[in-house]
Amino acid sequence: MKDNLLDIENVTVKYKVKNGNLFFNRYNDFKAIDRVSFTLAPSETLGLVGESGCGKSSLARAIVKLVRLESGKVTWLGKDWTLSQKNEDSQFKENIQLVFQDPLASLNPRMTVSEIISEPLENYRRELTSLQKKELVKQAMETVGLSSSMINRYPHEFSGGQCQRIGIARAIILKPKLIICDEPVSALDVSIQAQVINLLKDLQRRFNIALLFISHDLSVVKHISDRVMVLYLGRVMEIASVNDLFSNPTHPYSKALLSAIPIPDPISERQRKRDNLVGDAPSPIFPPSGCVFRTRCRNSTNICSIKEPEEKKIKLGHRVACHHVSY
């Protein structure tokens, strides 16, 4: 598929955890991401949903090479990037930017807003004069709804929502083709969340940016995404278009997630039939055998503990990894 912006094929990320005693170091490998595949088209939004420990942040960091890939292939515009050399990286890296969860922590407290936003320019647009850079920074600030008169302020003088806008301004200044948003609104207040979501949607529409939107909140994901991927303990459970996933969730985990989200409407919230999962998610260091979800699944049978389910295609663009789903 030539048209895809990003192709992720069987990507695996492994971490080492120290697990020894005073005299011997023992290391346990665990797979934060296990053979995940998906594609992303230009100016599309893919929502990535999952609970803590499901590896969504690892996946984001693996794509931008902050974390080493154990195996798998990342293809950007038809070119394999997993094997690329350092000098070729810039074309890839300047087109993928990241927006982080904690707005204040992702900004260097000793730098002014102008220095923070122009950092990508310092690395990828060295030919520009400092005046041109400043002009670009001001424009980016206006674009994300910050007054350019605040260019010489420091991050601690801003509120959380404004800090997130600074982070977004830094992400768009190189006019990237893809922005990965790692829980961009979960640290913000409700009224500010809505502002940032609107801003992201707005930017995407204007600049034709593709978004990889990571969140634990299905209602946010539903609002912003075209397609949604559900992760559990580093494995893909279900991937489908927004309408398919929300009207016809097929994997038991997706169903449980949907039913767990509270609805801000007393009458419908109280009439709902809840199908609660039991217990917490198991530790990703020691995942269950077979299907990783089986320990919390109502439908689990013998086969679930023996064999890991393959991803089945039940419809165009709708894949589910469950033994008990038929075509």
């Binding site: 969860q101 922590a105 950092e119």
Partner: peptide
């Protein structure tokens, strides 16, 4: 800290 990660993503050596 996240701002070191974000500097890396911005291409800093």
């Amino acid at each position: 800290r996240e701002f070191i990660d974000s500097a890396r993503v911005s291409g800093s050596s």
